[in-house]
Amino acid sequence: MPKQTETADQPRLPGRKAQAARNDGLILDAARAVFLADPGAPIAAVAERAGVGISALYRRYPGKEDLLRTLCHDGLRRYNAEADAALENSDGWQGLVEFLERVVDADVHSLTVHLAGTFTPDDAMLPDVLRAGDAAEELVRRAHATGRLRPDFGALDLGLVLEACAAVTMATPERTAQMRRRVLALLIDGMTVDAELPGPPPAGGEFAWRWERRS
């Protein structure tokens, strides 16, 4: 996530608030690394990796579910921000391709692959969930209008493409990023082929089951 810079419209935070903001950034970065490696890891492992006291972590996040929910909500917001940027492109096909590339580079869908079902989403996420669905529909509609996207590719197929890329893991982060881009390029080529896809397309709500809390 890009580092924010202070401007005249964004004054420097007072000492305690600035420290709290720094701690929160450290906690979220550490939580992403810890829980992507092991969704069952204890919350204490996050505090240790972040280099903050467990009491500081609990002041911000009362429990592990709160931290997991925040991580995934942040990923959803990043997805929506990339979709908004892609919709600014007047070329519907290029906008869709750039959207997929940026979301894969941001590794948003690793959160879905690893953390779905480990916490209960709350109603605060719903507006962003609906916004993501609308944006995906519009991106696909515009790409179809160019004639380059295969006619049987739907908005829900975007999730399949992104999760397929997120499932690729190599020995180093650099190699992982390279291989994910390679897989994405292969999948994008397949998105332009005018041939019938096997099986019925994903249905509305078909992916919702994964977010049900697993005991």
Rank of each mutant, 00 (worst) to 15 (best):
L96Q: 06
E65V: 14
G92N: 14
K17S: 12
A86R: 06
G15S: 13
V108F: 02
R60P: 06
W93R: 00
R78D: 13
L96I: 11
E48L: 09
G25H: 04
V34M: 07
A45G: 09
R49C: 02
L71I: 10
A41L: 13
G92S: 12
A56H: 03
E98M: 12
D107A: 09
A56C: 01
F35Q: 01
D66V: 02
L57A: 02
N23M: 11
N89G: 10
V34K: 06
V103W: 03
V97C: 07
A33Y: 07
L57Q: 02
E65F: 15
V97K: 02
A56M: 02
A18C: 13
F35R: 03
E48P: 01
I54W: 01
E88R: 03
V34S: 03
D29Q: 11
H109E: 13
R60F: 07
W93A: 01
L71G: 10
A86L: 11
R32A: 05
R22D: 13
F35P: 01
S55Y: 05
S90Y: 14
Y58L: 04
F99C: 13
R77E: 14
V108C: 02
A20C: 10
A20S: 12
N80W: 05
L36N: 01
L57T: 01
L57S: 01
P42I: 14
G40K: 13
V108L: 00
A21D: 06
L67Y: 13
L28S: 02
A45F: 14
I27A: 04
N23P: 09
R49D: 05
R32K: 00
V52C: 08
E65R: 15
A31I: 00
A50N: 06
P42K: 13
V103Q: 08
D84R: 09
A81N: 07
E65N: 15
G25V: 02
L68Q: 06
D38A: 15
V103T: 14
R16M: 09
E82M: 04
N80V: 11
A56E: 08
A45R: 14
A50K: 05
R78M: 06
V46W: 03
P39G: 03
A21Y: 10
A85K: 01
A44V: 14
E101I: 15
Y61Q: 11
D24V: 05
P62Y: 07
H109V: 09
D84G: 11
D24E: 09
L28E: 02
L96C: 10
R16L: 12
E101D: 14
T70A: 11
E82D: 07
S90Q: 15
W93Q: 00
S55T: 06
D74Q: 09
D24W: 08
G53S: 06
L68H: 03
D105L: 03
R78L: 12
R102H: 09
G51F: 12
T70P: 04
E48M: 12
L67S: 13
A56Y: 00
A20R: 12
L76W: 06
Y79I: 09
L96K: 08
E48R: 13
V52E: 06
A47C: 07
H73W: 09
N23R: 07
A44S: 15
Q94H: 08
K64S: 12
A30C: 00
V46L: 05
Q19P: 03
L26K: 11
L100H: 01
